[in-house]
């Protein structure tokens, strides 16, 4: 279970770091900070996604979608593709499926 939580944290971190490359780390982190239950540091590394990491992950993607529209989904999928290759069975929010 804790291992799965770690994978979700990695996924969220990858999404934030990808967004940092696109819109800058300042805005990317500010946007992530607005997501309820999501705990991260100044570098954009995620430590906790709360009780339901799938919902929190979905909210994170939605937050970025407010800014750059549905293309944020493409950016997020691109960012997490390597993590998904190593963890094929992991459940994801509808935005990332």
């Amino acid at each position: 279970m804790s291992n799965q939580k770690e994978i979700y944290n990695k996924i969220a971190t990858a999404i934030i770091q990808k967004q940092a490359e696109i819109i800058g780390s300042k805005i990317a982190i500010k946007k992530a900070e607005k997501v309820p239950q999501l705990v991260l540091d100044d570098q954009g590394e995620v430590f906790n996604l709360g009780l339901d990491p799938i919902v929190t992950l979905g909210n994170l993607v939605k937050e970025y979608m407010q800014l750059s529209g549905s293309v944020a989904i493409n950016f997020s999928k691109e960012a997490i593709s390597n993590i998904l290759l190593n963890n094929p069975g992991i459940e994801l929010p509808t935005e990332l499926q």
């Binding site: 940092a20 490359e21 696109i22 819109i23 800058g24 780390s25 300042k26 805005i27």
Partner: peptide
């Protein structure tokens, strides 16, 4: 600078 300067695409 706010949008990431030369480190981001938008910047």
């Amino acid at each position: 600078k706010k949008w990431g300067g030369l480190n981001s695409r938008l910047g």
